[in-house]
């Protein structure tokens, strides 16, 4: 059963979505990671992604990062369109402009960091349903995005079967040693370092935690059949990313923005 939202409900969803996006962007501004703060980077990695090639051939990243004023205007507009998308919810012009700007920002951030990270993609993906001003079309797209969220987590589990990390008992220890060695060197007396040492001393327990994490992704298949357990899926997503952040320094908190599709925003019956 599709949940058809009314304009007031769409407004509320927009407040949360673009409010969340604004917080993320302000955090990025504080971190010195917006376009005008990049200090004119030189080395980029468009990789084998032809969409990146097109954007780079159009010279957009090079121009924005190479001209401070242009970068500043871009950053300002990105924040402005984010706020505008929340408040001017009856029109789709602000979400369209937000979507274009955040897309360019993601390409710039990923290309100049030399690694195309997925954690930032939620900021763009969540804007897709808002590209439609019609509330019925928005509701259908929002519902579609909910299925896509379930697909993302479940396919992540599927890849772990196909590639084999699900059956690789050393995976937990290897990822901790690879990702957390710098942390443990810099902060040997931190509580987290002790937790990590304990985890490495108990490989079976650690392996079990990793397998549980992977199985948590598998649970998202339920979302294809019923919405009854969406709050559990939302809880699992939060838990999964929290534990990943602490244990292996994989920060996917920004990505949680797309989990907002798992909430029931209806205040009235269809």
């Amino acid at each position: 059963m599709i949940r058809y939202y009314d304009i007031e409900e769409k407004k509320r969803i927009g407040y949360f979505v673009f409010g969340f996006a604004l917080l993320i962007l302000l955090y990025r501004a504080w971190s010195g990671a917006l376009v005008s703060q990049l200090q004119g980077p030189v080395i980029s990695e468009p990789y084998v992604d032809f969409t990146y090639w097109i954007i780079f051939l159009l010279n957009i990243p090079q121009y924005l990062t190479g001209h401070f004023i242009a970068g500043r205007i871009f950053d300002f507009l990105l924040l402005f369109f984010t706020v505008g998308s929340a408040f001017f919810y009856k029109k789709n012009i602000f979400p369209i402009l937000y979507s274009v700007n955040i897309f360019i920002y993601i390409i710039i951030f990923n290309a100049y960091s030399g690694h195309h990270t997925h954690s930032i993609l939620g900021l763009w993906i969540i804007s897709w349903p808002f590209l439609f001003s019609d509330v019925k079309r928005f509701s259908l797209a929002w519902e579609g995005l909910r299925y896509y969220v379930c697909f993302i987590y479940f396919s992540a589990f599927g890849w772990k079967i196909v590639k084999g990390s699900l059956f690789h008992l050393e995976q937990g220890a290897a990822v901790i040693q690879h990702n957390m060695s710098t942390y443990m060197l810099e902060k040997p007396d931190a509580f987290l370092s002790d937790v990590l040492v304990f985890a490495l001393q108990h490989p079976n327990l650690l392996g079990g935690v990793f397998v549980l994490g992977m199985l948590a992704e598998a649970v998202f298949i339920i979302g294809f059949f019923t919405k009854k357990y969406d709050w559990i899926l939302l809880g699992l997503a939060v838990l999964f990313h929290t534990i990943s952040w602490f244990l292996i320094d994989v920060n996917f908190f920004e990505f949680l923005i797309i989990s907002l599709t798992l909430l029931n925003w209806k205040t009235t019956q269809n």
Binding site: L121, A156, W159, K160, K163, S165, E170, H178
Partner: peptide, 16 residues
């Protein structure tokens, strides 16, 4: 290729 993403992070076995 953007926007057709693959969600296979940490799917490759990583050796100690």
């Amino acid at each position: 290729v953007t926007p057709f993403y693959i969600w296979g992070m940490f799917s490759e076995p990583i050796p100690v």
